[in-house]
Each structure stands twice: as C-alpha cells, then as structure tokens.
Measured scan of single mutants.
Amino acid sequence: SDGDWICPDKKCGNVNFARRTSCNRCG
C-alpha cells in the first residue's frame, strides 16, 4: 500500500508497513 517501504538491508529486503519506523523482520 501507499507509503510502504522495503528494508534497505540487502540481506533482508522485507516490505514494511508505512507506519513502521524500523524493519519488522530485522529491526
């Protein structure tokens, strides 16, 4: 959805909800 972002860590790449301020997978 709008504002969702992909974790910049190449080893992670998790797609996070826009409301999250840190990655839901790797923190």
Rank of each mutant, 00 (worst) to 15 (best):
G27C: 07
K10H: 09
F17D: 14
C12F: 05
D2G: 08
G3S: 13
V15K: 04
S22K: 11
R19T: 13
R20H: 09
C26N: 04
I6L: 15
N24W: 09
P8Q: 09
R25K: 11
D2F: 12
G13M: 10
R25F: 08
R19C: 01
W5R: 02
T21H: 12
S22D: 14
D4W: 03
R20W: 12
S22G: 11
G27S: 04
W5V: 00
R19E: 15
C26S: 03
C26D: 09
R19H: 15
S1T: 15
N14F: 15
R20F: 05
I6E: 05
G3D: 14
A18Q: 09
R20D: 11
R20N: 07
R25A: 11
N14G: 07
K11V: 09
C12A: 04
N14M: 07
D4T: 14
N16R: 02
N16K: 04
D2R: 08
D2C: 11
I6V: 11
K11S: 07
G13R: 06
D9F: 05
V15D: 08
R20V: 13
T21E: 12
K10P: 14
K10C: 03
N16W: 01
R25D: 11
C23I: 04
D4P: 05
F17R: 13
R20E: 14
W5E: 03
T21G: 08
N24E: 15
S1P: 00
D9C: 00
R19I: 00
G27T: 04
P8Y: 04
T21A: 10
S22N: 14
C26E: 05
C23N: 08
D9P: 06
A18D: 06
V15T: 13
F17C: 13
D4G: 09
N16L: 01
N16P: 03
W5P: 03
D9M: 15
K10V: 05
C23A: 04
D9A: 08
N14C: 05
N24M: 09
C23L: 00
G3T: 15
I6Q: 15
K10I: 06
F17Q: 14
R25G: 13
C23P: 01
G13H: 06
G13T: 08
W5A: 00
N16Y: 05
C23Q: 06
C7W: 00
R25L: 09
N24A: 14
G27A: 06
G27E: 08
W5N: 01
G27L: 02
R25Q: 13
D4L: 06
P8L: 05
F17A: 10
G13Q: 13
W5G: 02
C7L: 01
P8K: 09
